[in-house]
Amino acid sequence: MGVMESSIKTSEAPLSRDDLARLVARDIAPGSFVNLGIGQPTLVSNYLTEDQDITLHTENGMLGMGPEAKDDEIDEDLINAGKIPVTELPGASYFHHADSFAMMRGGHLDICVLGAFQVSVTGDLANWHTGAPGAIPAVGGAMDLATGAKDVFVMMTLLTREGASKIVETCTYPLTGVGCVTRVYTDKAVFLTGPGGITVRETFGCTLEELQELVPVPLKAAAAA
C-alpha cells in the first residue's frame, strides 16, 4: 500500500491556483469544445495551447471566444457569461440563447469546468446557493452546464476557510445537479468520481493517508489509467 500511495503523490507542495489551472488545461483533449465557468475556471484559458485547438463556448451565445478584450478591442456587444468584454477568434460563431443551451443539453459540449461549494461521493454538485435564510437565489446557467456537458470538471480548494472538506458524503447545500461531476481538481488532490465511488488520481503535498485525514469519506487510489 505504501508504495501505491507514494506513487500518486506528484508534487511536494499543494498546487497554486495557476498550477491547478495549468493541470486542468493539460488534461483537456485536443479539439475539445469547452465551457469555462466564472471565477477560478476562467484561469484555465491562460494555459490552453494553440496545438490543443480548443474551442471555447460562452453560454450567452458564442463559440470561438478569444481572450478578454483590452482598450480599443472593447465592444459592449461582445461579452462573456460573466459580462466581461471578450474578443472573437477566426472561425467564431454567434447564436441565440436557446441554441446555446441546446448545445449543452444535447451533449455536444465536451467539458465544462465549474467552481463548487461541495461535491459528494456520487458526483452530486452544489455550487449555486448557500441556502442561507434571506439569501437571494440566483442560478444562471449552473444547472444547465452541470447537466449538459459530457464531462464536468470541478476546480476548487479542497477545504473551506474553516477547514471543512468540500468533498462530502452528501451535499448539505442545495444541489445544482445529481451525479454529474466526473473529476474534481483541488489544491491537494485530483479526485475521480464514477460508479465505483470516489478515487484519488494524484495528490499534491500530501500522501493519500494524510489526505484521508482531511476528507470524511473513504478514499482509495484510482486504478492506473
Binding site: 436557446a98 443551451f101 443539453r105 444547465d144
Partner: peptide, 12 residues
C-alpha cells in the same frame, strides 16, 4: 427563478 437554459427553452 428558472435555470437559464430552461428559461431559454421555455421561451422557445
Amino acid at each position: 427563478l428558472v435555470p437559464q437554459g430552461n428559461l431559454a427553452e421555455r421561451i422557445r
